[in-house]
Nucleic acid binder design. Structure first.
Lengths: 126, 126
DNA sequence: AAAATAGTGAAGTGGATACTTGACAATTTG
DNA sequence: CAAATTGTCAAGTATCCACTTCACTATTTT
């Protein structure tokens, strides 16, 4: 029986998710059209889970799951009053998105300007 | 032999993706930390696939796949010169993100202001 | 031309995700 | 209280997705 070889191989398949950073949570939450539709509905005012579920044509359970994702991203909030869970938009996540856009605009755009200049130079040289 | 019942059941499991809208492509692309890291690297200037792969500690294949996702979202562009594929940032996707944020800010924020007013009213009433 | 470099394509792996169902719990309503 | 309403929990399913490996092609370099 040979010694057990210490596997040097990297694991195959999707890497284990250790802990998700805020940006990933945010973009992931917004990446689903159903969730974006929910946010749009909520932009008209707070709604119950069933109020959201019916026009979307999905089950209450599905809506609850989506709400959870939105809450993790701080794009929505919900609280239970009686037997009804009332959902509403929360601005935090949206603010964070704006912040991200702002931060990266400055960072990338400077480069893009430089790039534009480079391309113009090339064109001129041709 | 009974007639084959026309299944009224909704299909179970993840719905098959038909065609993805631009927003989903965009948010999905940005939802992955590796891809965001790639964009940050590219913000310093164009890089080859292997140039990206090495510091990220993933295979060339993985990088190529990520680049494809970024290209679909119009966040990056790449072209092959000789045996090297040179990748760079493309502004279109980013512009679209800004547009999305802008559109939804007006739409949601109006509501949030109204909501804020309502809450203040409630507090005052209490 | 041989060897090294850079990338591509197809196929596979396993965790994540977007749903469902069905059984149950809690709150209203008749 | 019984029935209806509203939601929750646990578990299951099909698909997606972020990787990998391996075999291969195309371009430099020596």
């Amino acid at each position: 029986m040979g010694a057990v070889k210490k596997s040097t191989k990297r694991p195959v398949g999707r890497p284990v998710r250790v802990s998700e950073d805020e940006s990933s949570l945010l973009f992931h939450a917004l990446g689903d059209p159903t969730r974006r539709a929910m946010l749009d509905m909520l932009s008209a005012g707070p709604m119950s889970v069933s109020g959201l579920a019916e026009p979307l044509g999905i089950t209450l359970t599905a809506v609850t799951q989506h709400i959870q994702v939105l809450e993790e991203a701080e794009l929505a909030k919900s609280e239970k009053v009686g037997r009804v869970r009332s959902c509403r938009i929360e601005p935090k996540g949206f603010d964070r998105l704006e912040q991200w856009v702002h931060d990266h605009r400055t960072e990338w755009e400077r480069k893009l300007d430089r790039l534009g200049a480079m391309l113009e130079e090339e064109d001129g040289r041709k």
